[in-house]
Design a protein around this nucleic acid. Structure first.
Lengths: 105, 105
DNA sequence: TTACACTTGACAATTAATGTCAAATATATT
DNA sequence: AATATATTTGACATTAATTGTCAAGTGTAA
């Protein structure tokens, strides 16, 4: 049940599946191959714009890729925090509260 | 059932409860009163170090305050994202996965 | 050994976070 | 109403993090 791939792994797998080189994709993103290489190996974070472009280039579902991307950003925020797990739970509670009261005056 | 205070509100309430002025507290934090004023009104984010000092100054539970602080940081990451809620859930799943495999080689 | 894809690390450029300061706005007191 | 004090606001400076380039290095295969 291998279920947890990083965005980088997803991007690399799908780039290779399409037979594209770093060069090809990074040109479309208008960045150096070095950065894309680092993104694929999780050494750098992509920007949101890059993720959206990559979804297009690699024919991946945008929403899905964006969710993966955002979830990694969230985890990055708390990766060195002992209380990270608890903070995540509290964040979800707050999120519920916010959504609940969204339409109210 | 008022349950959702911002960190800023918590800080201000407790500062006033202790009869302290912005001036007194900001001096201990070694920052301008302007910043503390903004932190209390959620116009700026505090740093982690400031939160820990504030917990001491105001006799608040450090872990608790830190959890509130981190959860706000998390929400800040996704505040403008339509997929924020979903990203949060995925982040929690990943977190579980990480914790589960923590002790493994 | 040449060619090609990718990786690495030093560093430059850009953007975001954090801070100061001085003037503006309460609010209360004489 | 004038003064005093606390807080707020906004323009700007400083610092730190992010994002990028470049050139040299590694690996692999023809």
């Amino acid at each position: 049940m291998k279920e947890n791939k990083t965005i980088g792994e997803i991007l690399r797998e799908n780039r290779e599946k399409k037979g594209l080189l770093l060069r090809h994709v990074s040109a479309k993103l208008d960045i150096d191959t070095a950065i894309l290489s680092k993104i694929e190996r999780s050494e750098r974070k992509a920007t949101k714009e890059q993720i959206l472009k990559l979804a297009e280039i690699l024919d991946l579902d945008k929403d899905n890729l964006l969710i993966q991307y955002l979830s990694e950003k969230i985890l990055y925020e708390i990766k060195d925090e002992a209380l990270g797990s608890k903070a995540l739970k509290v964040a979800e509670q707050k999120m519920k509260y916010i959504n609940k009261n969204k339409s109210r005056k």
